[in-house]
Design a protein around this nucleic acid. Structure first.
Lengths: 135, 135
DNA sequence: CCTACTGTCCTACAGTGCTAGGACAGCAAA
DNA sequence: TTTGCTGTCCTAGCACTGTAGGACAGTAGG
C-alpha cells in the first residue's frame, strides 16, 4: 500500500488518506481482514505526525471501514457499514444527488451520465474480483 | 425561493446556500435567466451578514452557475459550465467515483445502485420539464 | 442630480480545525 | 519481566476559514 499525499492540495492530509483507503478498499487493493500499515512507520514515510495518521484511522473506524485490535493494529473490516438500512440509503442518496446535480451543471446528459456510471461500476467490480491484486 | 439554513448543522451557511441553489437549478425550481434574491434582503431574512450571501454568490459565479450584472443583480446562467470538456468529465467522474465507493462500503449492490441513479435522474428530469414550478 | 437599489472590496475578529510532541495503555516475544 | 511494537489521550500552537461591519462603485428611476 503506497499512498500519495499532496501537501499543496488544500485538502487536509488525514482526509486524503481516508479517501485513498476507502477507494483502495472498494477497488479490492485492500482486502477484508488485511492489516493496514501501522501508524508510526506510515507517518514517517509520509513525513507527517503520527496523530495525523491516527486521525485518519479513527475517522475510518467511525465509518465502519476498519477496526482496531488493541495492541495489534488496524484491519480492514469484513462486514462494513455499522449503519441501519434507512441511514445507508440516505447516505448513498445524498452522494448520488450530488453527482446528478453536478452533471446538470456540467451539461452532461442522461445517457452519457449512465454510461459513465456503468463504466465505473465495471471498473471497481473488475478490480475487486481479481484474486491477486497484480497491478 | 425559500432557503432553509441550519445553524447547528456544522456546515458553513454560505455552503448550505450554494448547495441549495445548485440543487434548485437542477430541479428546475430556478430557471435560466431568472434573478436570484438580492443580497441584502436575503441576508436579513436568513439573519446572516450580507457578506455571507455574497460569498455564496461569488462561489456560484466561479462555478459558472450564476452571473452578476453590475448594479442589476445576480441571475441564473443560461449556458452553465465555463470548463473545458476534459475538465468537466474529470469533475463528474470524481463525483461518480465517490458515490460508487460509498455504495461499496454501505454494501449496496450494483442493481440497487443503478436503480437509485435512474430514480434520481427521473426525479430531476421530471421536475425540470414542468413548465410552472408548482410545488 | 439625487436617491435607492444592486454587488464588491477591505479590514477585523472569533472560532475551529489541522498538525504536532509528550506521556500512557495493551499485546507479544525474548 | 523486559523490550519493542501496537494504538490513544492530552495539550498546545498555528493557520485558516467563516462571519461581520464600514466604505465604495455601478445602475435605474424620480
Amino acid at each position: 500500500m503506497i499512498f500519495q499525499i499532496d501537501f499543496k492540495a488544500g485538502k487536509p492530509v488525514y482526509l486524503q488518506l481516508v479517501d485513498q483507503i476507502r477507494y483502495a478498499a472498494a477497488a479490492g487493493r485492500l482486502r477484508p481482514g488485511e492489516p493496514l500499515p501501522s501508524i508510526r512507520p506510515l507517518a514517517e514515510e509520509l513525513r507527517v505526525n503520527r496523530n495525523t495518521i491516527a486521525k485518519a484511522y479513527a475517522e475510518l473506524e467511525s465509518q465502519g471501514v476498519i477496526e482496531t485490535l488493541p495492541g495489534k493494529g488496524c484491519f480492514l473490516k469484513v462486514n462494513s457499514s455499522p449503519f441501519t438500512k434507512p441511514v445507508r440509503d440516505k447516505l448513498l442518496l445524498t452522494e448520488i444527488d450530488e453527482a446528478v446535480v453536478m452533471a446538470h451543471h456540467l451539461q452532461i446528459g442522461r445517457d452519457k451520465f449512465l454510461a459513465l456510471v456503468q463504466e465505473r461500476l465495471d471498473y471497481f467490480e473488475r478490480k475487486s474480483t481479481q484474486h491477486d491484486s497484480a497491478e
